[in-house]
């Protein structure tokens, strides 16, 4: 362990702004990206499910009177 205290760790020898500015941006983007993709994928799946269900209902409706 190279740090004597937590505030030492935060200060990064006076480079805190630069080190944490880099870490923060990297962490933010690398967490956001998978979340955005997962959301978009599940939204697409739901949309397709709805579409297919509607199509099937149309089919059965068309068929049933005959």
């Amino acid at each position: 362990m190279v740090w004597n205290s937590f505030s030492d760790f935060l200060a990064m020898g006076g480079y805190g702004l630069y080190v944490w500015g880099s870490v923060g941006a990297t962490a933010l983007l690398m967490m956001l990206e998978p979340i955005i993709i997962a959301r978009r994928n599940s939204a697409l799946t739901t949309q397709l499910q709805r579409q297919f269900r509607a199509e099937r209902n149309q089919h059965t409706q068309r068929r049933s009177p005959a």
Binding site: V2, M12, G14, T26
Partner: peptide, 24 residues
């Protein structure tokens, strides 16, 4: 990188950005 690696002789603790910068 943030708890074990030693301080750099030239750049102090500021060099630790390397652990994100170079991989990216």
């Amino acid at each position: 990188g943030f708890f074990v690696a030693p301080t750099d002789a030239q750049q102090g603790e500021g060099y630790r950005i390397i652990f994100l910068h170079v991989p990216a």
